[in-house]
Nucleic acid binder design. Structure first.
Lengths: 211, 211, 211, 211
DNA sequence: CATGAATGAGTCTTCATTCAT
DNA sequence: GATGAATGAAGACTCATTCAT
């Protein structure tokens, strides 16, 4: 069996109508995913929810997988952007400010639409999703790494490794909030804990620098 | 078609032959999952790999989902047991010993068969998997919580919350190792980092106690 | 889009029931093709006519194309066998006997079930059909070539070429009978004409040999 | 859905622009057919190749089938015209001249664009194509029949039958050239063989007439 | 007239599950 | 208990055709 693994969008919308259709399909996909789960996510159901025909989906996405990827990508993109912006904003500042800003940016971005974040975690991994996630992960690690390197009051040894571990340490607890392993209402407290955890960790692996 | 949502094993193997067959099916499932991925995991393929007929699978599992769950459960069970044992072994000891032991137990258990751990992450979430994962997560948090409460040199405030955050902070980086977001060869270093991170965090959220 | 072009049969029937099913599917395919034409030949219709489920078709053929090919192949096989046998039977005989026998064998085989022959002509060519037809054509040409080489009363110069042209000269008129460009009732007369044509042609391209 | 079986062109192009568009569509159809095969022949692809929109195709053809038929018809028309002209040119001449001219006209016309001829053979038969082919076949047979009747040095008994068989005898070998069952480079030799075959056959079924 | 986005019926194909042998 | 042939519901995807712009 040969499966179409091409993921690139099939056409770029030229008419205004097209852009609207793409948007509508995208949203419908997310809605079905959130409200009915992955196994209920059929092209028919998406089309139905979007109020378009199945054919329209294939006008813009070469296959169902590509649609899924697009939705996942957009989500990850907003999250990573939030983190990147936070990093950019705190360059050259002390460790404490960095920890606080990064944690806030990441947690808030992930919890902004918890249902969506949760639904997307359910997406089964595949070559395509793995690639995408890998790309975003790298961006995150790079942003953190750069940030750490610019720190005003500490010098982090092995910034690449530390950035990766730090990133991982944020991901896990947020996942727990999303799965309600920790009640969502405790988000604020968890955020504080993560800030504390981040700062404690970073201080441990950094040498203080006196200006 | 009404979907069978029963998950409980259809029969407990009473005879040696039965037990062996269950085992064979279980292993075959894991092998197919690891070598060909989730979407190739069909009952026919499992039966084939196991050297039994499809019918035999249904002799022991009410449906495919139950088989999947069983495989996931066994994996999670070995991991949680390792953690629980580590916790039991360190009751009443100082924070540093606890951090080191828990990190070692968890990381080693997860990385013992990285291919298996990785493959199981790919399993799409569903009501059944969510329940299972939730159950294991609770056990993990309880174990950590109890452990912290028994600490000889520190008193952790809000042990439930801390246990949860701590657990999360371990999960994330290990996931990164499994997806090679951090190269697997760096496991040892990551383990050290996680020990450092754990200890730093716990010290931050604990009040020292002098015996 | 990647299309499955594997054509080899999916499984060899092991149980008696299987063999019967294969046969039933084969016949049904032919019936649908004959009675409703190529564009009505859907897997659903074949299964329906065969009295089995769609799934059963895929138990024995990897895809619809393979089924078509199998049907075509069996037909061509019976025709080519008839010709090969006629050739074998006339080895070493005079030109006239050869011409008569080959024409009779071919025409009779093709006209035995005119509806079937006609239906199969409608099959659109594809890589797979082309290969098949090429194989059969070669066998026909070889058989004729060998036959001519064994002739007792004449020596054919360029037997390969002559065999090919001769074969072609038989194919065309028979096709006309099948499409009713020549009324089917005139088969007998056409056969005589083809015998005359064959003999006249062969005599023209052969040098008489006196024993 | 009721299928539109109307085949007649939707409008006769009155303006130069229209005629040009029809032409462009016609050519594009042929090109797609030749280069990508029948199953790739979609209206979208034709429109794309033609540099027009799908809608434009429907401006000039009621449906896809009609387009196909038109293309086939034009091809067959050029072939039959060549044959008819050859026949007209040889009226009243001797058998040998007739055989030579007809063979030359037919073979050359068919082999003029072998890729096109080949591609059109792949077209699956349907009521519409059958009718078309039948009409052309009749014209061919009539032309040959008339030709034979005018022969100066022989009287063909049963000219209708003979014309049909003769026509068929030419069709087959040319098909073999097109499918490469006989290498295309051998066209010239095959043409000679066909001339010989034709003459031999016609002499066999004719009575000599002395002027 | 031209465009091309939208349509949706129609196809193939898969695969969990059953049950006669 | 074991087998594996049979089932058929379900889903992805195509593409001729229409029609609003």
């Amino acid at each position: 069996m040969a499966i179409n693994t091409d993921i690139s969008p099939r056409k770029s919308p030229r008419q205004a109508r097209s852009a609207a259709t793409v948007e509508v399909i995208h949203d419908a996909t997310l809605q079905v995913l959130v409200s009915q789960g992955l196994q209920a996510l059929t092209t028919a159901r998406v089309a139905d929810r979007a109020g378009v025909s199945v054919g329209s989906i294939y006008q813009y996405y070469p296959n169902k997988q590509a649609l899924l990827i697009a939705v996942l990508e957009r989500h990850l993109e907003t999250v990573i952007r939030a983190v990147e912006q936070a990093c950019a904003a705190r360059r050259g500042q002390p460790l404490a400010a960095m920890a606080e800003a990064v944690v806030r940016a990441y947690v808030d971005a992930k919890l902004h639409r918890p249902d969506v974040s949760r639904a997307l975690y359910a997406m089964p991994s595949s070559a395509a999703t793995d690639t995408l996630v890998a790309r975003i992960t790298v961006r995150g690690q790079l942003a953190l790494c750069d940030l750490l390197a610019s720190c005003s009051d500490a010098r982090v040894l092995e910034p690449t490794l530390v950035a990766a571990v730090w990133a991982g340490a944020l991901v896990g607890p947020v996942q727990m909030l999303l799965t309600e392993a920790i009640p969502l209402e405790r988000s604020a407290v968890v955020r504080e804990q993560l800030t504390a955890l981040s700062l404690a960790y970073l201080r441990t692996v950094a040498r203080p620098v006196h200006a």
